[in-house]
Amino acid sequence: MNRWFETQNDSLSTLLPRLERAWRLRKAPIVEGLRPGLTDDAIDALMAPTGLVPPGELRTWWRWHDGSAGGESIGPGSWQFGSLAEMIQTLEYWRRFQASSCDASEPAVWKSSWFPAVQRGPNHVLHVDTSAATTAGEAPVGNAEPFDDEPRDVVRATSFTQVVGLWLGLIESGTFTLVDGYWDADWNSLPTELKTGRLI
C-alpha cells in the first residue's frame, strides 16, 4: 500500500493542511461545510462520558476541523467527516448493537476500546483502538460493518495518520478525481490490496 503515496513518514498535522489544499484546488463539496476545530477542553468534555481517551492523532483531527456539515465525502472511500459529537452518537449506536444483537460466545462485533473516526453512515465505520495507542499518539485502525463475514479485529492500517496519508496520496496523484461532485477512480486499475483493504 505504501507505494501509492509518499507520506508515510509525515505527521498528521503536516498532512491535514495538504488535504484541505487538495480539496480546495479541486473545489470539493466538503470544503463548504467545514466547521471550526475544537479545543482540547471541548474534546475532553465530549469524550468524558464515553470512558475513552482519544489518541493524539484523533485530537489533531478534531482540533483541525470539527467535521464537515452536509455529509460530503472526504475522498477515496466516500467516508464522511463527522463532528466529534456525531461520532460519539455512532459509538453509542455500535455499543447498543453489540449489547443487543451479539451472542456472548461469538467474537465481539464492537470492542469497548474502539472509537469511530469516520463513517459511511453509522453502519460502516473506520475505528481506532484507543487501548493500543502508542506514546506518539497513534493507534491501529480497523473497520466495522454489522453483518460483515470477515474477522472483526483485522488491523487495516497501523495508524489513522497512515489512512489520511493514503487518501491524500490517491487524490494528489490523480488516482481519484471529482466527477460531478463525487470522487471516482478507475476501479479496475487499482491493485487488489487497495480494493480489499477496506480503507477506500
Rank of each mutant, 00 (worst) to 15 (best):
E150T: 11
D186L: 13
S101F: 06
L12I: 11
R156V: 04
G82M: 02
N143C: 14
S83N: 07
M1W: 11
V163T: 08
R59H: 15
W183M: 05
L126T: 06
R63F: 11
L168E: 00
D184K: 10
R21G: 10
Y182I: 13
T7G: 08
I30A: 04
L194Y: 02
L166Y: 05
L52V: 13
V125D: 01
F147C: 09
T39H: 12
L12K: 09
K27V: 07
L126H: 01
E92M: 09
T39M: 11
V154M: 13
W61L: 14
D184T: 13
D103V: 06
H127P: 05
D180G: 05
S101H: 06
T7N: 10
E145P: 07
P17R: 03
Q8D: 12
F97L: 08
W110A: 03
E172P: 02
G51S: 13
W79K: 04
K195M: 11
F176Q: 01
E57T: 08
L16N: 04
R24E: 08
Q8L: 10
G33Y: 12
D148M: 02
G75I: 03
E32V: 13
E138A: 04
R18I: 02
P140K: 02
H127S: 08
D103H: 04
A99M: 04
A136F: 04
T130R: 05
P54S: 05
D153P: 10
E72F: 14
V154I: 15
L84K: 06
T90D: 01
S113I: 00
L12E: 08
W23G: 10
A108Q: 12
G174H: 05
G37W: 09
V141W: 02
L15N: 07
S68M: 09
A42I: 14
E6A: 14
F147M: 12
I171P: 00
G33P: 13
G174D: 04
W183R: 00
I200P: 04
S101M: 12
E86C: 07
A108V: 08
G197K: 01
S159K: 07
C102S: 05
P122T: 06
A185S: 11
W183E: 00
D148F: 01
L170V: 02
G70I: 11
R152N: 09
W79I: 00
R26Y: 05
V179R: 07
A42G: 15
G71S: 10
L166C: 01
D103S: 09
E86Y: 05
Y182C: 11
D148Y: 04
K111C: 10
M47A: 15
T50V: 12
W61K: 06
S13M: 06
A108S: 10
R26I: 06
F115Y: 05
R156F: 06
L199R: 09
L170M: 07
D186R: 14
A157L: 07
A157C: 01
P191D: 12
L190S: 10
R156D: 03
A185T: 10
S131L: 10
A117E: 03
G71H: 04
G197S: 11
